[in-house]
Each structure stands twice: as C-alpha cells, then as structure tokens.
C-alpha cells in the first residue's frame, strides 16, 4: 500500500524537481559544458564564478535589493490593510458595509491586464514614473486578503468579542490580542502568498520603471538573458539567485503554508 502511494509521488517529485536541479547544475558548469550533449548531470568541478559575475557585473545585487525592499513593503501593507479591513467587515456595523464589501470582492473579478494601461497613466500623472511608489502603492490593499480575513474572522465566536469588551479590551486590542493570534496560521500563509506574488511580478515593474536604480530582480534577469546570450551559465546563476529567497521562505514556512491553506483548521 505504502509503495503504491509513494511511487507516483516519487515520479511527480522527479518531474517537478528536475528542472530546478538542472538549473542549479548548469549554473555551476561552463557555457560549452551546458551546450554539450549528452548533458552533464553532475558538476564534477563546480565553477562558482558565474554567481559573482551575475551579482556584480549584471547588477543583480542592486536588483535583488530593490526587489527585497518593494516586496517587504507590499507584504507588510497588504497584511495590515487586509487584517484591518477584514476585521471591520466581520465585527463592526457601519453604513454601506455590504456595498463596500461587494466592491472589494468585485476587484477580484477584474483581470490585471484590463487595468494595466489606465493604471500606468495614473502613475505617470502622479509623477511617480520610475520610482518606488509606482511599484508599491498600487498593491497596498488586496481584495483577496480582505475576503480571506473577513471569512476567517467571521468564524471567531461573538462571545469572545463580548467577553473581551467586558474585560476592558477595545476593538484594536481585541484584534491584536485575540483575533490575530487565533488566526496566526492564516496570516502567515497570506503573507507568504503576498510575498510570492510581489517577488515574481514582472509586467508591472517593467512598464513603470526605466532605470536599474528602481528595477526589480525579474527585470534584471530578463536583461541578463538579453545581454549574456553566449554565457548561459551566468543566466542560470542569475536565475538561481533570484529564486533563492523564495526557496528559503518556502522551506522555512512550509508547515505554516500548508496549515493556512487547509484552513478551517482554525476552529476547534
């Protein structure tokens, strides 16, 4: 039984893992070795120089720093605004609450491609073209985050809210002391999700920036590819560098992510 279960899983792991493996291996080979057939599957004499080339010559260091800054700001802002808005929709009574929530949900229905041109125009009109605000501000709030947290917070028993009020805790302290700790796995999972999507952005940063001072690592990678057509090992090294932060995060928070995605695990 166990064998039956693990054989297909193993095959799938190889299929998914192989491209990643070959990327790492290629980053440690020389360009002719990469082009050679049959391919080298294990680097007997790894060459680490391609990493420093990518990092320094192709300015990947700057791009990585930009990406880190932009992503961190977006994740922080998205988590904060989504938690606050989700709490308001779940626990507070105010006029047009339903309508406001519907509008939040409606933003999920509009594909990014439909808004990208007017959004770019707005950024240009605001004088933010080629600046960090252009990369960060459009992503300060997230419809999916608000929806996610509202649904989760609706599952928090109302009695807890009443008990906290009697115990002398107002909305903010109830949120930070009770609601957020209870929903920590979900907040973690959402932060990770926000990180992934912010880190992997390509189209939007490309059209609102033009200099390497503010550009992010995905654009840097593209430029690296264009500039080093013959040095495929450097391209592979850049790819590994760009994917490294995500890889580290996934390993560190894997448990958190799985728990958050299989939510409903919140209750009980």
């Amino acid at each position: 039984m166990t064998v039956l279960r693990y054989v297909p899983l193993g095959v799938m792991a190889v299929i998914i893992g192989f491209p990643i493996y070959i990327t790492v291996v290629n980053s440690l080979l020389s360009a002719p070795q990469i082009a050679a057939r049959p391919p080298t599957l294990f680097p007997t004499h790894p060459l680490w120089g391609s990493f420093s080339t990518a990092f320094n010559q192709a300015h990947l260091g700057v791009y990585l720093r930009n990406s880190a800054f932009v992503t961190l700001m977006i994740v922080l802002a998205e988590v904060i605004t989504s938690v606050l808005a989700g709490y308001a929709f779940a626990f507070m009574r105010f006029p047009f609450r339903r309508t406001a929530f519907m509008i939040c949900i409606a933003t999920l229905m509009v594909p990014m491609e439909a808004t990208i041109v007017p959004n770019r125009q707005t950024i240009v009109d605001l004088g933010w073209f080629n600046s960090f605000p252009a990369l960060i501000v459009p992503f300060l709030a997230s419809g999916i985050g608000i929806f996610l947290f509202r649904q989760a917070f609706l599952g928090v028993p109302r009695d807890l809210c009443d008990a906290a009020r009697l115990d002398g805790y107002g909305h903010f302290r109830f949120l930070t002391r009770i609601v957020m700790p209870i929903n920590r796995p979900l907040i973690g999972a959402f932060a990770l999700y926000a990180f992934l999507s912010a880190w992997n952005q390509y189209l939007w940063p490309l059209i609102v920036t033009e200099t390497s001072g503010v550009r992010t690592v995905q654009i840097g990678l593209r430029q690296l590819q264009a500039a080093n057509v013959d040095q495929t090992n450097v391209i592979f090294a850049g790819t590994v560098l760009a994917a490294l932060p995500i890889f580290i995060l996934l390993v560190a928070f894997q448990r958190q992510l799985v728990r958050g995605l299989t939510a409903g695990a919140l209750k009980g």
Binding site: D159, A163, L166, G168, I178, I182
Partner: peptide, 19 residues
C-alpha cells in the same frame, strides 16, 4: 462602557480565549 460597569459575565459557550 461595558468595561466600566464593574460586572463580569459567564457565557454559555464559556468564551475562553483558545490561544
């Protein structure tokens, strides 16, 4: 405000903070 009324309540669901 409820917190200034000097009353304590026990709920049917107990309303204990689970974490």
């Amino acid at each position: 405000d409820p917190k200034d009324r000097d009353v304590a309540m026990v709920f049917q669901s107990y309303a204990l903070y689970p974490h």
